[in-house]
């Protein structure tokens, strides 16, 4: 698939999203669809660092919440509109990403992962103690009248369709560029990559920054979606687990893997929430992840590749 083809598919998906938005089906569909699409953004963003570069980030909640709380701050301070919130949330999280990029100078493998997890805990503590954005008791957003769309649910759903398409297109472009090849080399062997001329530090900083940016983008509309944000919901461990599980299930080496993983797992979780119980979510993730790690360590896309080669 050429770049122009991919762009066409992306535009078609957004068109489909708009059509679905116009249909006016059960509001719950938009509500659940938003979550699944949000996970497409999160899984794809996580995979730029975790899959392409091989640095496993356990601190997804930190980036997501930073996006959400940047929004809250800007709403509180400036009544900033949604596009500004998304861009700002992304940029602030990108800065945090740049920061963890410098961590990779000293920390590799599981030590990097532990540090990112710690980062999430530290950031949550800071937010809990910051009254301006609601502190421990949370922040309630009163949404203004909805522009252009029938309801906020439909607007946010359509917005997430667009954000997911943009994120996936960016990830795909990187994967197929010299940057993606360099990241794959440093994932396989960082010393060898450096000695073969790959500027490993610069590429890692790029990956952490970009990954952070889109994780922040995913979190920025969150206050509008839930209208009540508390630290424990924005820093939910689910984000850390899903961000890792979805690409693992789909396959981490290509852009398609996280998309498939997010759609499958995200949908399964939404269905389970409605039909069985909302607590079953994590159990599903856990069981599926264990199965995949044991039976198909390269995820679904890896499994298909293997079967085709036969």
């Amino acid at each position: 698939m050429k770049t122009r083809g991919a762009l066409a598919v992306g535009v078609a998906v957004i068109g489909l999203g708009l059509a679905l938005a116009g249909l006016g089906v059960n509001p719950y569909v938009y509500f659940a669809g938003y979550v699944v699409l949000q996970y497409v953004v999160i899984a794809t963003a996580w995979n730029v660092l975790g899959g392409y570069a091989g640095y496993v980030n356990f601190g997804t909640p930190a980036f997501f919440a930073l996006g959400a709380y940047t929004s809250i701050f800007l709403i509180e301070a400036l009544r900033a509109p949604l596009p500004v919130l998304i861009l700002s949330g992304g940029l602030v999280a990108a800065l945090l990403g740049l920061g963890i990029g410098y961590l990779t100078l000293r920390l590799k493998g599981v030590f990097f992962s532990i540090a990112t997890f710690a980062l999430s805990v530290v950031l949550q503590t800071l937010i809990i103690n910051w009254e301006y954005v609601g502190g421990a008791k949370g922040y309630t957003l009163i949404r203004p009248p909805v522009p252009f769309f029938r309801s906020w649910g439909v607007l946010l759903f359509t917005l997430m369709v667009a954000l997911a398409v943009v994120t996936v297109l960016v990830a795909r472009t990187i994967e197929r560029s010299w940057i993606g090849r360099g990241l794959a080399a440093l994932r396989d062997d960082e010393d060898a990559a450096e000695c073969m001329g790959v500027p490993t530090l610069r590429l890692k900083l790029f990956a952490t920054t970009l990954s952070g940016f889109f994780l922040g983008v995913a979190g920025a509309p969150f206050p509008y979606y839930v209208t009540y944000v508390e630290p424990s919901s924005a820093f939910d461990l689910n984000y850390a687990v899903n961000a890792l599980a979805m690409p693992m299930i789909g396959g981490t080496t290509t852009w398609l893997g996280p998309v498939i993983g997010a759609v499958l797992l995200g949908t399964a979780q939404q269905v389970a929430t409605v039909t069985i119980s909302s607590e079953l979510n994590l159990l599903i993730v856990g069981v599926v992840l264990v199965l995949f790690v044991v039976l198909a360590p390269e995820g679904l896309t890896g499994l298909v590749r293997k079967l085709r080669r036969r």
């Binding site: 010299w178 090849r181 396989d188 062997d189």
Partner: peptide, 18 residues
């Protein structure tokens, strides 16, 4: 220290490109 996820030819592509 080969790049394990790439073919032999792709292994050479990295230093060639960079």
């Amino acid at each position: 220290k080969p790049f394990a996820s790439m073919t032999v030819l792709e292994n050479l592509g990295i230093p060639l490109e960079y």
